[in-house]
Design a protein around this nucleic acid. Structure first.
Lengths: 347, 347
DNA sequence: ATTAGCTGCTAATACGCATTAGCAGTCAAG
DNA sequence: CTTGACTGCTAATGCGTATTAGCAGCTAAT
């Protein structure tokens, strides 16, 4: 550090023998100065800039102009730590790509002090440094969301969000339709007795799956619904067997994996005796050997679309929009035709 | 958007019946105003702040104070696209953690426009928005590095870097010692004829490995050095066999994998007939079935240390430091005692 | 009574840039 | 010779904050 003081337009002006204002005008190719500054003067200024390597201070720029070409990214959980990494990576990937294309940089908001639950609004909120902000995470803070909606700061949520004192701008995945499509598939394969493992309410993404499910099961019998997240796998499997379900829908891949493993141990063939469907292409699915029938979540596309929407909101004050991207079915090997007899366990 | 104008200290001042300066003093608990502003006045100001939800504009703040609590992160390759993701993730993880602890946000610089090679210095450089910056990537641009070193902008490189018109502040991994330790291990296991696959120069990380290697092979015979990166695996293996080497050092995990696979096909047992050592715990190593003997690269720790160093440089103008973190040996199953006879292939 | 010191506050300024109003000079038309 | 239009530039201002100098009023000490 030390030595070289920060270069300013004044320095350039001095070198070029003009005023600071002229430097600014040359730099910004201001329309109002079109044809007002002769090539010769521009040259002198540009020469000085080139020789010194001057770069305009973006802070001052933002101060004067109000915009920054910076997008904030707020994640309600740390973006990188490995447990979460797989969750956020595709989103961040899409955001980064879109931001780069649009000429924006990204400000990763690390949120509140370590340990505490992350908060967008703190005493020290640096949010406003960015022109607008993308919000993502599994667990949103509803109060903060309300405040964001009420405020005049442009933001877009990645993932559908319920109204919070007003409509929330978002780009989400159409889990409801994705789920419904899977239900139709199950029905077409002759299943009549189905089960659902996972809660029916809670986060929007959970609710949407259940909504899609319950809206599509006409003609089918929901013989078991196990909302308990913490329930041990063998109890779940017991319940499924007892219910006589021939196809089960899981919200959580982890649950599905455990139950499938257990089923195999007990000699219950999947999908011959029991079909399993998972609601969403959870990451790491490929690491489990078994390819579960599911639907895709277009995470990268969601992130790209959200970024573009945010930029439109920032630049053109576009009104609030809510977009759901389709979730295409994913072939797997855990959904088959309904068995002629119910699955049975040993003695 | 629309409506609500941005709140300023002046608004708060008006509400509280004080001056803007007083608001600022209350907000910052300035030492110079210690005991100069009575509790009663503070209350009035704080009340107005609470009621309006005022938050100081970070841009103006930076403007006035010169600091922003923002760290720039410049990656010479896109940070997220999946091919790179595994490379950058541990670094970003460490940076994010450290930044959050220290109360800094991160500015992810997307660099030049899409397609073009990324540049730190461009017309659009918003780098200076950050108080300082971390630079990472496989391929550094030497000219840019020189310029950074020459400038007064605080930065720290993740990974050792050669001088560039002056010493470069960095936190790197001690690949030289890590490599040397592996050489010692190989020697201790009775090997005398060894080979090295990978270039001896190029990036600092490459050079360091070779330096550690060549500095530690006293008493051993380097019977083959194959610097060619693009060489087909069977040629490499042919060369190794011809040389009579009993232990090979690989810079690239990919090369090691190919050669090991080929060796198995040819009936050359690893490590019974040929020991393989890889210089660094490359990511995805665990996916290859074989656990290669190697050394660990403390990526997360490097990133954390670099972040902390950068903050010290920003806040306290700490002089340039260069730190190498130890790379501990990693047990694997590809290094064994030297065979009594040279490995032989069939007729 | 003067000085010194304290309290409680404010005016003024700097930070680096963008932007606007407008000045001085030239030149052509009237 | 005046007017107006145009050229080439600059002075001045604002953005929202932090910070410093310092003012006014008061008390206590000299």
């Amino acid at each position: 550090m030390a030595a070289t003081k920060r270069l300013t337009q004044r320095d350039i002006a001095r070198l070029a023998g003009v005023s600071q204002a002229t430097v600014s005008l040359v730099l910004n190719g201001a329309v109002s100065a079109e044809g007002r500054i002769p090539q010769e003067t521009r040259e002198r200024v540009n020469k000085a800039i080139r020789e010194t390597g001057y770069v305009a201070d973006p802070v001052a720029r933002r101060m004067a102009k109000g915009l920054n070409r910076i997008l904030g990214v707020f994640t309600y959980e740390p973006a990188f730590p490995s447990a979460q990494a797989d969750f956020f990576t595709p989103f961040l990937l899409g955001i980064e790509e879109a931001a780069q294309e649009l000429g924006y940089d990204l400000l990763l908001l690390t949120g509140a002090a370590a340990g505490a639950q992350r908060k967008i609004f703190g005493n020290n909120t640096r949010l406003r440094l960015a022109d607008g902000c993308l919000v993502l995470g599994r667990q949103f803070d509803r109060d903060e969301l309300t405040r964001l909606v009420a405020g005049d700061y442009p933001f877009v949520a990645v993932g559908r969000r319920d109204d919070a004192g007003g409509p929330v701008p978002y780009v989400g995945g159409d889990y409801a339709s994705g789920t419904a499509a899977l239900v139709d598939r199950v029905r077409a394969l002759g299943h009549t007795r189905i089960a659902y493992v996972g809660p029916a309410s809670g986060a929007e993404s959970t609710f949407d799956r259940w909504a899609g499910f319950s809206g599509a099961i006409a003609g089918l019998h929901l013989v078991a619904h196990m909302p308990d997240v913490a329930q041990p796998a063998n109890e779940t499997l017991d319940g499924l067997v007892a219910s006589g379900a021939t196809a089960v829908f899981f919200i959580e891949l982890a649950d599905a994996i455990q139950v499938e493993t257990l089923a195999r141990q007990r000699g219950i063939a999947v999908p011959e005796q029991l079909s399993i469907v998972v609601l969403g292409n959870h990451i790491r699915a490929e690491q489990t050997g078994r390819r579960f029938t599911s639907f895709s979540i277009p995470r990268e596309a969601m992130a790209r679309a959200a970024t573009q929407m945010l930029v439109r909101r920032v630049e053109h004050d576009e009104p609030i929009q809510q977009i759901l991207l389709p979730c295409e079915p994913l072939e797997g090997d855990t959904l088959g035709p309904a068995p002629l007899t119910k699955p049975k366990t040993g003695p």
